[in-house]
Design a protein around this nucleic acid. Structure first.
Lengths: 111, 111
DNA sequence: CTATTGATGAAGTCTTCACTTCACTAATCG
DNA sequence: CGATTAGTGAAGTGAAGACTTCATCAATAG
């Protein structure tokens, strides 16, 4: 254990980005805010489905949205990607540290 | 369209990292190489399942493995994470460019 | 006002996929 | 040699989740 720690939110971001539709949404939103309807048109899915994806993206901090009148506008949240950045950096740092500690065998971690 | 382009392999990496078990595997492998059996023990799943996950990680370039005798040893592939890094950078660049281009409304992208 | 439009909750369908069991092969140990 | 041990292919199970339809509500349009 102790492998993951304080990476909890990176978990949710990676989980969210595991879905291709949400990846396309992020790519689209990186070009500017969009409404539920416009995203539905872009993605070829129902508004209901878009709303569900937005909820996931908001939950992990990748996006936020607000409703003005009857129109909900969704925007990318810049900070969300930095969490992912931190995760990558952490894995890399761990990897490099493990390379320093040795140069040869290290397979005697039992079975 | 034209939203995704040349990001095809980032797609597979994000798809692979969407699974929590594979994320744990990556975290474990960042601390050094491991055998199928040791990963199975660490994760609490069968060797068969581990083998399937390794196949996915190899397919997207995040890991590679080789079999010596009857033991397969799996290692992280450093370059794999840089693909993900590039994806983040691309989204950020697009985001910042969209911020430059305007300061107000841009919702007339219709469907 | 009525009609339309944007969005959302509830609930169901259906596919994907993580994981298992079983059977088998090959390498190592005694 | 026979007995474990490491791994893998095939095939099946089960659950997660992406998406839909339907019904409803509120905001805007005419």
């Amino acid at each position: 254990m102790a492998i993951d720690a304080k990476l909890i939110s990176a978990e949710s971001v990676l989980s969210a980005l595991g879905d291709p539709t949400r990846r396309t949404m992020v790519a689209g939103l990186s070009q500017g805010p969009a409404t539920v309807s416009s995203l539905a048109g872009l993605l070829g899915i129902t508004r209901t489905a878009v709303g569900q994806h937005i909820a996931v993206l908001e939950a992990c901090g990748l996006a936020h949205s607000e409703k003005l009148g009857r129109v909900r506008t969704c925007r990318l949240n810049f900070g969300g990607l930095s969490v992912l950045q931190d995760w990558i950096d952490f894995q890399r740092a761990t990897w490099e540290r493990s390379l320093d500690q040795l140069g040869e065998v290290l397979l005697e971690d039992d079975e």
